[in-house]
Structure formats: C-alpha cells, structure tokens
Design a protein around this nucleic acid. Structure first.
Length: 588
RNA sequence: GGAGGCGUGGUGUAGUGGUCUAACAUGCUGCCCUGUCAAGGCAGAGAUCGCGGGUUCAAAUCCCGUCGCUUCCGCCA
C-alpha cells in the first residue's frame, strides 16, 4: 500500500506526521509563487500546498504542469493551517500537506464534462459513455456506497435471521408466461435455447421443496421490456423465500429490515420514515382513495366520491354520469383558463371524457357552466366531501369508476409534483394487500394473473375459481414507497391440485401445464411445504434512499433507454463464425 | 408501437425570419500573481446552430422528413 492515509482522513490531531497520499487532482490553484492542489480520492479531499522555499525546484516545476484529473502521489508533512485559512467546508479543512515529493502516475486529457459538480445537468449519454469519469464525482461515490451498505445490511440481516444465501442459475428455462425474456442459444444443442431468469421465482420455490426453509439471494433478474426511469433490462432483487409462514411473517421480516436500515444509516441517506409500522392498505382502498395501486402517501389529496349527491343534478354532465369523483388541488383557485385547460387535456389523455374544474372562492364555488348549474346543496356536498377551502381548486371526473379513479390518480400525482407536496426527505413505506388474483384480459379474452400464477388464493376464495374468478383475492402483498413499487411477494401455492386449477383457469391445458411447469407440479407431489416470499428491488430501494430520480444513478454501468451501453457499444453484431457455431441465422 | 420534451463552441444555456460577422457562464490555452479553497487579473483559441430536403431576396429561427437522447402510455407472469 503506497498510501499512509486517504484523502479524507487527516485531522488537526495528525499535525506533524509524515504522510503519503495518492489520488486525482481535483483542482489546482496556482499563485505563481505558491501552488495549492486539491487531492481527491473516494474518501475525500486534502489540500496539498507547494511552497517553493520548501520543495526542490524540479518538484515545484513538475507540479506547475499538472492538470485536473492527473493521478499523483504526494509525500509530505501535515501542517495545521493558520486560524484564518481553515476551510470549514472540508472535513480535512483544518490541515494541509506540505509536499516534499510528488510523483505523477498518469496524466489526463481534459474531461468531456465537469467532475466537480453533481452532474445532473450533463447529458446523460455523455456521462454514460465516459462512466469511469462520471463515477469519480462525489455523488456517484456516495450512491454506490449507499447501495453497498444497503446490500450488506440485507445480507447481515438475513443471516442473523437464519436465512442462507443460495445461488441459482442464470441459464434458465424459457417460461413464456409473463415478461419477455432474453434467450441464449445453446451450442451443444443446436436450435435450442436457455432463457435468462425474469426472477428466480420457481427455483426458490423448489429450494423450499428442497427443505432449505429460509433462502435469500441478492439476485440479478432480466426482463426484455421497454425501459423506464425505474426499470433496467437487468436489475437486482433481494430475493427471499420461507417455509411455514403466513404473509404477516414475510411482511414483518422485510419491514424490520428496512426500519433498521433507515435508522442505522440515517447519516448516509438523511431520510426519515413517515409510517412506523408501515401503513397497510387493501388494493381496493389504494385504488379508491388514490387511484393507484402504488400510491405516493407523502401527501393527501385523496379522491372523494360525490356520486350520490349529484345524481339528480341540473348539471347534465353529473346527472348522466355513472359516478362523480374528484380531488382538491390546494391553493389553485387562481389557476388561469390556460392552466385549467391543460388539466382538462391531461385528464382526457388519461382516458376521462373530460374534467370539471371548479374554483373555490371566498364567496363559494364558481366555474364556467357547472358552477352556475349546481345547487347550493350540491356545492355544499362537494366542499364537505373534498374538504375544500376557499382558495382551492376542485377537479372532478364524471365517468365510470375505473376510468375516473385512473384519471384522478394520475392528476393527483401530477398536482402533487407541481405543488411540491411530497417531502423529498421522507420515505412513506406501505403495504398493499388483498389484490385480486386475476384480471380479465379483454384483448386476449382470458384471465391473467395479477401477480404470477404461483400466488396462493385466500382460503375462503378457493371455491370461487370456477364461478367468479374476478372475485378471488390472492395472498399477495406489495411493498410501495413514494409512488414506486419497491417489492412484491406472496404466499405460494404448494399443492399440485390447486396449482392445476389456477393453470386451468388461465387457459393452460394439462399437457401445456406439464410442458412448461412440470418441474413445479412434480415437486408439489413430493411433500412441498407451505411457503411464501418476497422480492424487494435493490435498485429501487437504493434510488429511494439516495433520493435519486432514476435507478441508473445507483447502478455503476446502467443501460440507456434503448437498452444499450454507449461506453461498450453494445449490443453489437456477432461474427458469422459465432453464429454458425450456435446454428443461429440472422434474418435482417 | 404511440405521445410529449430536448438537440446551438468541451460542458450548460440564451437567441424563435434581417441588427447573428451567433451571446452568456463555465471549462480550456498563455501571461501575471506567496494563502487560496467555485482563487483573482489580463489576453486568446474554440460552433458549418443533430442530419437531409424545402419555403424565402434572406433560415439557428418557418415547413417536411430523418436521426439521437429523455419522460410517459402500451409492455413490465
């Protein structure tokens, strides 16, 4: 080890020590007769001072030539800075190192973008092309450190609770239910393919049949779907499965883990929890009150229902509608016609026929058209239901329940963002439970699983499978936070007969069921224990704790929205030789 | 597959028919400078305004097309 200290280590108490520091030149301040160099490494920054009276002329001359991002090694003595020259902004600001010897390990070209900023206003693809430079910025070092601490906490916590980490294969079987997969051609078996796992779901269930009882894995998952700010083609989950548990056991396990992490690492992320214990909502509540199955609970603005009060309205839009629901945008009564038109257009894009906008003035509720037609009783009902105050703006959708809740849910998020109602330093974790097991896919005319086809139904709903599938609720639970799905899990089916009934409902014949999932059905015939699990998303949790707007900021080498890596230039074409060996032909 | 936003020196922006021979900040280069820490001062280099076509006497600016990036919808068992 060439360094005696890191660039973030030295304090006033180190005065007089001979030290060797090494790292990158963050910035150089050259006074002609005196040079300061800010030496940076992952741990911090230390000021190196070059006084021509204390260093040989050739050392001084060499330092005159160094530039930002040069890699240097400095030998010198720690000096206490004179009182007036201390820098309280720097952890090492009480001291400086008087260099006696400087080695230039490597020069550096001028970086294509600044490194001494947080980087948020640099074009992201440029950052990604030179990711090795981008990672030098303090923010990225902090994010990767936070991610490491989170994963370490997960491993330690799971270990303490009797879980063992078991690796599962990356070369897995194609199971065309669910997300699109990445395929890997087999050379040994021409024309046949492996698939990368969307998650280790089936394997971890088989580990339960294998008697592992408590499994976890920091697992890489692959999904060939279009990207979003919170989605990458490959991502990481804390994959967990346990035997002989109910859903409350799984939820309590993860909740405690996250509460402990938040408390223990508060200095690193500065976030606080809004709900301890985590809030719990049913799917129906989440949809009815927030129009969203992963609501941002950092602010209110709940959806209210005035269907009954407006049934006999003189205002035709309300009277003729299957329902009337709305939200109150606080302090927005002064919105201009242009602004309210924007909101109407927004609601239309989300599928609503329109949006009724009412201004709540000191004199009461007004609004073009509707304001004049609504009775005093209706206006009073609106104010009461929405908790509206003078100065607020009421946004109402008169439409079928599903359409109205969706549009209002999206508007709620939009208004919350515009009005900055969500505290960025707060994490509002919550559990959403009692999801419907199946939803009817109109396009394909079939039932599809809401979660996945291994989720167990509530015991009391078992007999509704054949009569009323839409009514069946699953033993599923989603972990949500600040408007993101941070994880999902369920108690699984562990009996072959129940599993086959689910598969049958989903339209799989016995033959197909065995072809795709025979390994699971077989396993269930050899004493499969009741079991369940969950898979919190590591990237999303790291993003939330780091306060970042997308998961790329907490991944060292992420792919862009086109699923490409602009640094590596991938994906890229394969050679004819490779393709031939794999018996694969490209039909471009 | 669809919708919105963005694309102007290295970087981030301004400029939305003629005064643009393209501005500002920062970075970069050179010179001066012994207490700075976003150092300062002076001087300088650096842009065919994403690309292609069109309209016009005249296009960074208007129109059409196209490419790239990004956000969202679809998709994500």
């Amino acid at each position: 080890m060439r360094k005696t200290h890191t660039a973030g280590a030295l304090r006033a108490t180190d005065e007089g020590k001979s030290v060797i520091l090494a790292g990158w030149v963050h910035r150089r301040r050259d006074f002609g007769g005196l040079i300061f160099v800010d030496l940076r490494d992952r741990y911090g920054m230390t000021q190196i001072t070059l006084d021509p009276q204390r260093v040989p002329a050739e050392v001084f001359k060499a330092v005159e030539g160094i530039r930002a991002e040069y890699v240097i090694e400095v030998e010198g003595t720690v000096h206490l800075r004179p009182e007036k020259m201390r820098n309280p902004k720097l952890a090492t600001g009480d001291v400086e190192v008087f260099a006696t010897k400087v080695i230039i390990h490597n020069a550096a070209k001028v970086p294509p973008f600044p490194i001494d900023t947080d980087g948020t206003d640099v074009d992201e693809n440029l950052r990604l092309k030179y990711r090795y430079l981008d990672l030098r910025r303090e923010r990225m070092a902090r994010n990767l450190t936070l991610r490491h601490k989170l994963i370490k906490h997960m491993r330690d916590y799971m270990d303490r609770n009797g879980f063992i980490e078991v690796e599962t294969p990356i070369l897995f079987k194609s199971t065309p239910e669910g997300a699109r997969e990445y395929l890997v051609p087999s050379r040994v078996h021409p024309g046949e393919f492996y698939a990368l796992p969307q998650s280790p779901q089936q394997l971890k269930q088989l580990l339960m049949v294998g008697g592992i009882e408590r499994y976890f894995q920091i697992a890489r998952c692959f999904r060939d779907e279009d990207q979003r700010a919170d989605r990458q083609p490959e991502f990481t989950q804390l994959d967990v499965e346990m035997s002989f548990v109910d859903r409350d056991d799984v939820m309590a396990l993860i909740e405690t883990m996250l509460v402990q992490f938040t408390t223990e690492q508060a200095a690193l992320h500065g976030k606080r929890l809004l709900y301890t214990p985590f809030r719990r909502l049913t799917f129906a509540e989440a949809m009815g009150r927030y129009g969203n199955d992963k609501p941002d609970l950092r602010f209110g603005m709940e959806i209210f229902d005035v269907t009954v009060a407006t049934r006999d309205s003189q205002f035709a839009v309300f009277a003729g509608a299957p329902g009337v629901r709305g939200i109150v945008a606080p302090g927005c009564a002064a919105y201009t016609r242009k602004q309210t038109d924007e909101l109407i257009e927004f609601a239309r894009k989300e599928g609503a026929k329109g949006l009724v906008v009412l201004h709540h003035d000191p004199e009461g509720i007004r609004g073009s058209g509707a304001g004049a037609k609504l009775s005093e009783a209706e206006k009073a009902a609106l104010i009461a239901a929405g908790g509206s105050k003078p100065g607020d703006l009421l946004l109402l959708v008169a439409d079928a329940e599903g359409i109205a809740l969706n549009a209002l849910g999206k508007l709620r998020v939009e208004m919350g963002t515009r009005l900055k109602l969500a505290d960025p330093n707060v994490l509002a974790f919550a559990w959403v439970v009692d999801f419907p097991m199946f939803t009817w896919d109109k396009d394909d005319s079939r039932w599809v699983p809401n979660h996945h086809l291994f989720t167990a139904p509530r015991d009391e709903d078992l007999d509704k499978f054949e009569t009323n599938p839409g009514e069946v609720k699953g033993k599923q639970y989603d972990l949500v936070c600040n408007g993101y799905e941070a994880g999902g899990g369920s108690i699984r089916i562990h009996r072959r007969d129940v599993q086959l009934r689910v598969m049958s409902l989903l339209g799989l014949s016995l033959e197909e069921a065995y072809k795709k999932f025979g390994h699971m059905l077989d396993a269930f015939e050899y004493g499969a224990p009741p079991h369940g699990g969950i898979a919190p998303g590591v990237d999303r949790l790291a993003m939330l704790f780091a306060g970042e707007p997308n998961i790329r900021e907490v991944i060292a080498f992420p792919k862009n929205q086109q699923a490409a890596d602009v640094m590596l230039g991938i994906p890229s074409a394969a050679t004819d030789k490779q393709l031939k060996e794999l018996s694969v032909s490209v039909t471009l």
